[in-house]
Amino acid sequence: MSADEILPEWALAEVDPEKMKVLALLLADPNPLHFDPAVAPRLGVAERPVNQGPSNMAMLVNLLRAAYPRGRLRRLTVQLRGSVVAGQSVRATGRVTGRERQGATETVRCEVALEVDGGRLVLSGEAEVEVPVVASG
């Protein structure tokens, strides 16, 4: 992919509240917004459990890993701009903004974003992926 090329989209039809429960355990995150379906409506935050920020970040990582299966993520910076709740569909998109060759590898710079139903932006950021250069000829 050259600079300004669009990465293949990564999409999820429905965010699964069961995965939030496992991630809450892995993170040791006691916030019930992520696992107790009664809490988010009671607080007026959302109608369903709220997905963890690191899970939303992972969707951008998944986008990059699918685009560069032999690549290695070197850096991802994200701004968290909104919430994703259970049952929503999400769409991760990205665009190559630059490349830098260093010997047998190339650093690919990308802009990335995560949107929920209806196109609302919930995450935006930049990433660098180190990709092996395939010898030509």
Binding site: K19, L26, P54, S55, A58, V61
Partner: peptide
């Protein structure tokens, strides 16, 4: 699995 990724030997970067 919790991060919508196929399990493999290397941890998911978000770990």
């Amino acid at each position: 699995d919790a991060l919508y990724s196929e399990p493999e030997e290397r941890p998911h970067p978000v770990m």
